[in-house]
Design a binder for these strands. Structure first.
Lengths: 182, 182
DNA sequence: ACCCTAGCTGACCGATCGGCCAGAATTTGA
DNA sequence: TCAAATTCTGGCCGATCGGTCAGCTAGGGT
């Protein structure tokens, strides 16, 4: 065996993460991932049951984090909830940069009938959040997440101190939601 | 002949526009468009040289508009330019809703090496706008356009009076860019 | 009546996709 | 040392993709 199972899986996930972020889920073939990871396509499917499973595992950490944030927001009202949402999303995105970027990149595809797997039911909640005018605050949060995706794209690889980036993003997000004038 | 050439082309473009907006460029096959337009796949390629040509024609009206806006912005400085950019983008997006939505939807794909045709060199300018920190104001405008895409997705089909939507979007955009506190 | 031409189509092509499988290669444990 | 278990791969499969092509069909001009 060339690499241990855990190493191999990690390498595959690393390659897939970068390629998905660069070319999107649909735009990345199993062969692309295999070549990048330095193994055969068949080897991918030994470690992962199918292509969806790779993405699902990549996004896995985001799911519970998002659910937890969602739970925290449920107990708050309008403005307080918005502030908490922004802080939570900034925090979440800083801890799962590329993962969140992938999520954001396909956010539109997720909304209008996905070919992507519905990781932890995020798709359904996205759809709920965006359907109807009554969900306006939530829609705003998701809109801001989309914007955050582009911001992270340009600033992502920058060796910006995390604290600086966090403060910057938080300020920008609050401004977006009209909660800070600055 | 079932339909006249111009009618056929119009029907194809109409189908392609809706399908591209719903499932993305890569997510829509020629057969999908043909079925929706009520003709054969081969008939599509009689009226359009290839798949790219359909998208190119759909986005054609946006190109010159964008270039004209860009020209207008060139002569302005920081804050004034940002205000004009927002107003211009709102205006542009209201006139080319679905087209702009498609553009926004694939904005990320366009940036990281596109499989999409570079309509009127927009790709290159997007890349320029997002590379380096110095282009921050432009990057912000594009980020706002991405957000606008999601907003239009949810509010798009709504029978909202155009003037109301325009005012709302303008206010939101200015708030996003930190130029209006409201 | 005739043909010509624009419009349209079924059948087909090569390429690529995700996924499968039999078996080779390598490591492990007794 | 050797069999068992794990890891890995070449080759293949059916489906689907964008695109081509020879030829059918339906009017319009003469």
């Amino acid at each position: 065996m060339a690499r241990s199972a855990t190493t191999m899986r990690a390498d595959i996930l690393d390659s897939a993460l970068r390629l998905f972020a660069a070319h999107g889920f649909r735009g990345t073939s199993l062969q692309d991932i295999a070549t990048d990871a330095g193994c055969s396509k068949a080897s991918l499917l030994y470690h992962f049951t199918n292509k969806d499973a790779i993405l699902t595992e990549l996004l896995a950490p985001v799911g519970p984090e998002f659910a937890e944030l969602e739970g925290r927001l449920a107990g708050l009202d309008g403005e307080e909830a918005a502030r908490a949402a922004v802080a939570g999303l900034v925090d979440l995105s800083l801890r799962f940069r590329l993962q969140v970027k992938i999520l954001l990149q396909d956010v539109d595809a997720l909304i209008c009938r996905p070919e992507l797997p519905d990781v932890d039911g995020i798709t359904g909640r996205l759809t709920d959040a965006l359907s109807g005018r009554s969900a306006a605050p939530q829609a705003r949060v998701w809109a801001w997440m989309a914007m955050l995706g582009i911001i992270l794209t340009s600033a992502g690889e920058l060796a910006l101190p995390e604290e600086t980036l966090r403060a910057e993003l938080t300020r920008g997000a609050l401004r977006t939601l009209g909660l800070q004038t600055d």
